[in-house]
Design a protein around this nucleic acid. Structure first.
Lengths: 340, 340
DNA sequence: TTGTATGCGTTATCAG
DNA sequence: CTGATAACGCATACAA
């Protein structure tokens, strides 16, 4: 069995016009549901459309309309995050919902290699989309620069440090970090440390700032260890260092759930019980949080709301409205589970 | 602070031609890297391009070329699955890799509501993509029908029962089910039941068939309970029924990890210990598998490979090659964890 | 090697 | 209400 590579030629407005015995202009009018077409013309055209199986060619329409009703959703994350972190999927779903409401098509573009970057750059500048939502852009990201150069309407989720004149939405990392750290304090912990990560991103440095806020005078620089990535391995490593620095540590804020999971393991091999001996909190409410034993107390991100907000900000730009560059922050909540 | 809604007019080939003092045809030729352009012309044109900031308009190019170098990746799953099941993300990544290799852009389209279906239908028929990869199409899916009517090149991941003349790729559900059931047998279990789900999909019925294969003579119809969805709730319900039918049951094959997770809970409330009293296996190796206590022994799907294969089959169609409709099955493996 | 002319499928303008 | 006709931005056969 095999597919014959036939691909019947698509009917055009022209074909419909001939079939219905009218002009292309009239056909175009009924296709776009305009007024001022006679009932008989409309009828003839509609049956002609059905007969020849006409479906409008959007490329042609885009060309003349100068818009596509489509917006790109560019996700630039390492494999593991894309697969493990429910946040990204929820952001996508939230954005899709708002866009769908406005009759725009969300097209998700995933960049996973160098050549992906080039291709997506071309795609974006090729007029396939009216605007773009960027998720987790890198600092000095080529795609960001193309967007800027093109003047393509865009909204960022989170904001890379070098983002100047483009709006973004995100969560208040600093406040959220302070809130979750407060759980440690509320539990009566005295020696509270932090495994800070990704300090080159503002999410990383903001979380550290929030930790500091929550502790105030009791903040102790020597109890902060700083690792490069939001990863399990770095969490394990960081916790080991912390334990070496002060064996009496009894509370830890890990900069992400993955980091917390690694820390939990380090704690376990060192013979500490969580939460009996030491309390631990994470950040993200990712799949790691429930995978841990006990499940993590962590910061829940309203990912869908973030996606929705991002879409709304983009749509506003598309409508030509002025949008604030301040960025809008959606509120987080801490979810209490078993580690504190 | 606010963005001025300026959006500078994009430069066209025409502008470049004027700037460089040549004709549009020549510009087009250097843009597309053709031979037969003088060094001086090329040079003048290239600097002109840089000067006016020209970037080709893909909509126009698509219109004349009749292709887009883009393929759609339509995912039609309920929220929860999209977020919980790593398989879908990995399929996406695998497909993207193969497509990227061939310089095609993967655009992911998620359908999440009735209006999404309509819009995507329009998108697909509008010439935005050269072909499409359909993930988990429904039986009698409107999108499937549009694809068929358009003669749009397509590959399905999994195959809905009503899929006729379109190629698909997937896993061998039947064999995989037999393999994982064999774990139960190998453990010496005597009263082995199954919580079958989604028997209206072929994945569902194939898994049941595989279970039957593995048990042979020892298959006992009364130990099979059949629930509608691959869900936690249905798993809980199904296990309860099974326990009612035969309290001495000591092995269970749940049709998916979500089902298994529900079953595990039902087992727990009934006072059974897993795996001491009863062995349990799942299917999918989704996030549920690791979230359970103990973690599930289950069937691992080579999701990335499935995505790659799907993309390859689609690319073959785009090249005009005949492709087999038999469907290609990629091999699975069982991953042994704590429940057997 | 380069320029010219034509077509791709629509929408939009403007007379009828 | 309807029919020509001109864009839209690009590729391409053909002529020069």
């Amino acid at each position: 069995m095999s597919t014959p590579p036939i691909r019947r030629k698509r009917a055009t407005i022209h074909d419909v016009a001939i079939e219905a015995g009218v002009s292309r202009g009239t056909v175009s009018r009924v296709v776009n549901g305009e007024r001022y077409v006679s009932a008989e013309a409309r009828e003839a055209i509609e049956s002609a459309i059905a007969k020849v199986g006409y479906v409008p060619n959007t490329a042609a329409r885009n060309l003349v309309m100068q818009r596509t009703q489509a917006v790109g959703f560019v996700v630039h994350e390492p494999h593991s995050l894309f697969v493990d972190d429910p946040n990204i999927g929820n952001i996508l779903l939230g954005a899709n919902e708002a866009l769908s409401e406005a009759d725009h098509q969300l097209v998700c573009l995933v960049v996973d290699s160098e050549r992906d970057t080039d291709r997506i750059t071309r795609y974006l500048s090729g007029g396939f989309v009216d605007g773009v939502i960027m998720v987790s852009a890198r600092q000095n990201d080529p795609i960001t620069r193309v967007i800027e150069r093109l003047g393509l309407p865009a909204t960022f989720v989170g904001h890379p440090p070098d983002l100047r004149a483009l709006p973004f939405v995100g969560i208040d990392n600093r406040k959220a970090a302070a809130d979750v750290t407060a759980e440690l304090v509320g539990r009566g912990r005295r020696r509270i440390g932090m495994i800070a990560a990704a300090l080159d991103r503002d999410s990383g440095s903001d979380r550290l700032a929030g930790f500091r806020d929550a502790l105030g005078d009791r903040f102790d620089e020597s109890l902060v260890v700083d690792v490069p990535l939001y990863s399990y391995d770095d969490g394990f490593e960081g916790m080991s260092v912390l334990l070496g620095r002060d064996p009496s540590i009894d509370g830890v804020f890990a900069a992400s759930d993955a980091v917390a999971a690694g820390a939990l393991e380090a704690l376990r091999v060192s013979g500490r019980r969580v939460p009996d001996d030491v309390s631990l909190v994470g950040f993200d409410d990712s799949a790691w949080a429930l995978r841990c034993h006990p499940p993590l107390t962590t910061v829940h991100q309203p990912a869908a709301a973030v996606g929705q907000r991002a879409a709304e900000v983009l749509l506003a730009q598309l409508r030509g409205e002025d949008v604030s560059l301040e960025g809008s922050l959606v509120p987080t909540s801490v979810v209490r589970r078993g580690t504190v």
